[in-house]
Design a protein around this nucleic acid. Sequence first.
DNA 1: AAACGTGGTGGAACGTGTTCCAAATTATGC
DNA 2: GCATAATTTGGAACACGTTCCACCACGTTT
Lengths: 203, 203
Amino acid sequence: MSIANPSTSEDLGSAAQRERRKRILDATYQLAASGGFDAVQMRAVAEQADVALGTLYRYFPSKIHLLVSALGSQFEEAARRLNDREIPGDTQADRVLYVLKRMARGMQGDAKLTEALTRAFMFADSSVTNEIHVVGMAMTSIVTHAMHGGVPAEDAVTDEDVAIARVIGDVWLSALVAWVTGRSTAAETAAHMETAIHLVLRD
Amino acid sequence: MSIANPSTSEDLGSAAQRERRKRILDATYQLAASGGFDAVQMRAVAEQADVALGTLYRYFPSKIHLLVSALGSQFEEAARRLNDREIPGDTQADRVLYVLKRMARGMQGDAKLTEALTRAFMFADSSVTNEIHVVGMAMTSIVTHAMHGGVPAEDAVTDEDVAIARVIGDVWLSALVAWVTGRSTAAETAAHMETAIHLVLRD
DNA sequence: AAACGTGGTGGAACGTGTTCCAAATTATGC
DNA sequence: GCATAATTTGGAACACGTTCCACCACGTTT
């Protein structure tokens, strides 16, 4: 076992290996975007990535690992994009709402992809802890960054800030699941998020 | 198609059919309690309930429906038990915390069962909307009841109360998933819940 | 250059959710 | 009581995640 756990964007491995890994993730995105969770079939991913099934399993020990890794890199990228610019809005609630609406818009544009990644996230068990952690950290970081308004140093983040961010993250996840599984509309989801944020963030 | 959707405890069907349905749910509980989600195998449920596989699928169109229905009836029973007695505690936060800790204790005692039901809930898609709704209502009702302290009439429940209850429910679900999938300990879960409740319910 | 080891390949095989079907059983209307 | 419809049964069959294995390719060591 030497591929270990490149959950984050740690390099690790030869150029050819990084290439393969990228092809696999690309194929995953593409299949997920076109047909959601069910369309991400391991045989299809392997074929589209031009990799043997056994190799796919060597890189990602299960479909869930694969999808959660994909979700992780997507969140990390979103966090990167959001965290080095200033967030508009006068209050914490405004800013957090702004950021989450922005992310929601992005996800709604890719409903199938979002469905695939979210389902996987919700189904993950303890063997996926590392990958899950990446997602949780990115989410918390996005929210606390928004609370604090923008580029300024992240050092002013208190424990309470983190607690608040986690609650918001939880609500967001639940709302996301409800939306993704067709149990609530995008508008309902947005309204619920707004209520929750005002409840927790009374500036 | 005549079994339709007895998601709640609607009767419907002959005595023999109600009998079969009960046997199926009993078998589900038993298997879930002993081995969790993975142990609830449709063939095993059918055999233990002394029913043909095809019949099982006629009563519950998928494993997810089966488990979410089971979760629904469990929650309804919990809601029934909790909602006709007074809840101890001086503040809303205290009472809600009391109730949720109580439910948590119950669920931790049946970790495998809880795991099975929660996994199913999180994985459900729009075809399970009805069953899911039962669970959501029971949860909201438990929390609002606790907020209002006990037996007194339920009519004083405002929109904001419901919004608060839903947020708490969301956090609770996320925490439950994290616990159930082994990503956080029972103690961490309890602490997180407590923080969240105090954040949302500042009496 | 030969031997070796690591990782990749192709494909068979297994487990479990789900579907389907013909025969047997049970319920219903006359 | 019988004809007819509805349900249940038993089991085969299919799909997809996962495992396994025999073999091949390529870079490293000597």
